[in-house]
């Protein structure tokens, strides 16, 4: 997944992004981190094909894309679940839009509901679930369409801290055996350092790639708490902070 010279100027005249060029490594988790309003959401929506860029191009596996596609799936900050549909139907919604026949898509949906830890809630409605559970539904929906690329816009930002940590661990677990390319937007330095293989730091508006940090945390054999005490993890947090400090005040 490559971006070349992406620029975005909104109709209002706001220049959100300028000349963003970056190649996201396949099968890795990359975070987009940057000051508030620097265009992270804008960039993610351009990658997802939800809004057009005003300059540059997005290539997926070498092919130029200019709209949503089956190889990319989205997880939304506000969950974006259908309030009138059950968890089961929500998770199957991406497949429903693609015309996958009923029983087959429900089967797939049930499998992923189990994987994100929501077994037993298939028949619940979103308003009966907590924020953390709703986002698990959002995640299951994105996994169910079996896209190679998963785009997540601050997925844990409306979830409390404890739930968030558990969720981060579960996310790493879920991704461990799948070769997914994940692009993850966050505000949290710790979250970025904890989850990422690669952190793309954006400058203040108009956003452009300012630095790339690779935490090199060896997650393979370590428990979450060990990772949070890992030297490379702590160094990454420090590095990010030093870059971001420049954009404050």
């Amino acid at each position: 997944m490559e971006l070349t010279g992406i620029g975005k100027t909104y109709a209002t005249g706001v220049e959100a992004l300028r000349d963003v060029t970056h190649a996201f490594p396949a099968g890795k988790l990359s975070t987009l981190l940057g000051p508030s309003g620097c265009g992270k959401t804008t960039l993610l929506k351009i990658i997802g094909g939800l809004i057009p860029a005003t300059a540059g191009e997005v290539r997926v596996k070498g092919k130029r894309v200019d709209g949503p596609g089956a190889e990319r799936a989205f997880v939304f900050q506000d969950f974006a679940l259908l309030p009138w549909a059950t968890v089961l139907r929500n998770v199957a919604f991406g497949l429903e839009l693609r015309g996958v026949p009923g029983e087959e898509r429900l089967e797939i949906a049930r499998k992923f509901i189990g994987e994100v830890g929501l077994a037993g809630f298939e028949a619940s409605y979103p308003h009966q679930l907590s924020g953390g559970m709703r986002q698990r539904v959002g995640l299951a929906r994105a996994l169910a369409v079996d896209a190679d690329i998963i785009l997540m816009d601050e997925p844990f930002s409306s979830v409390d801290e404890q739930t968030r940590r558990k969720f981060q661990e579960d996310l790493l677990d879920l991704l461990r055996h799948r070769r997914k390319t994940v692009i993850f937007v966050t505000h949290s330095i710790e979250e970025a350092a904890y989850l990422s293989d690669q952190i793309v730091l954006l400058s203040a508006r108009p956003g452009t790639v300012s630095q790339i940090i690779q935490p090199n945390v060896n997650r393979g054999s370590k428990s979450p708490d060990e990772i949070r005490r890992d030297k490379n993890y702590l160094d990454a947090v420090d590095d990010i902070w030093h870059v971001l400090k420049r954009y404050l005040g």
């Binding site: 939800l50 949503p68 799936a73 989205f74 939304f76 974006a80 259908l82 839009l97």
Partner: peptide, 20 residues
């Protein structure tokens, strides 16, 4: 954001109407 979600998951124009 529901409309956006549907589009992101590949909804055609008519599906945005009938499904959302």
């Amino acid at each position: 954001s529901l409309i956006e979600m549907a589009r992101a998951f590949g909804a055609r124009n008519y599906q945005v109407y009938t499904k959302v």
